[in-house]
C-alpha cells in the first residue's frame, strides 16, 4: 500500500461502502430470489447470476441480494421479490436472465416496477 493521505482514507471508505452496506445494513433495495427446489429446477440460478452481474456492472452499492425458499407458487418459478425501502414489494414470476436484467434497470435503478412481469404488488415486506 502506498503512503496514505487524509483524502485516501475517505476514498478507501467509499470503495468499501458496498461491502459494509451489506454487513451493517442501510441498503436501499433488496432483491430476494426464490431458490426452492422448483425455482432451481426452473432456472433460478441463471437469474441469480444475471442479477449479480448487473449489480457489479452498475456499480450500485446500496442494493443487496438474498435468497429464500419456495414462494409457494411453483408454476410461476423462477421468481424474485424486489423491495425498495418504503415502497410496496413487488413479486415477479416466470423470470429469465434477460427479464431480470430489465427489471434491474427499470425498477431498481429507475424506480418504476415492470408491470408486464409483475405477479403481485404489496405482499409482505421482509426488512
Amino acid at each position: 500500500m502506498p503512503r496514505l493521505t487524509i483524502e485516501d482514507l475517505q476514498k478507501i471508505k467509499e470503495k468499501h461502502r458496498a461491502t459494509f452496506t451489506l454487513r451493517e445494513g442501510g441498503y436501499r433495495a433488496k432483491i430476494t430470489v426464490h431458490m426452492g427446489t422448483c425455482g432451481i429446477a426452473a432456472g433460478a440460478r441463471d437469474v441469480m447470476t444475471a442479477l449479480m452481474d448487473e449489480i457489479a456492472n452498475a456499480k450500485v452499492e446500496d442494493v443487496i441480494v438474498a435468497t429464500s425458499g419456495c414462494a409457494g407458487l411453483c408454476a410461476r418459478e423462477p421468481m424474485a421479490t424486489v423491495e425498495i425501502i418504503n415502497h410496496p414489494p413487488v413479486k415477479y414470476g416466470d423470470l429469465k436472465a434477460d427479464k431480470i436484467r430489465e427489471i434491474f434497470k427499470e425498477h431498481i435503478i429507475g424506480g418504476n416496477p415492470v408491470e408486464k412481469y409483475a405477479l403481485v404488488v404489496g405482499s409482505e415486506t421482509t426488512y
Binding site: M1, L4, L9, I12, K13, K15, H16, R17, T19, F20
Partner: peptide
C-alpha cells in the same frame, strides 16, 4: 464485522479518521 488482518476494512469503518 471486519477482517482484522485487512487495514482497508478498518479504514472503511472510519478507521484512522480520528488519528487524522
Amino acid at each position: 464485522l471486519i477482517d482484522p488482518e485487512k487495514i482497508e476494512e478498518y479504514i472503511a469503518r472510519d478507521g484512522y479518521q480520528a488519528a487524522a
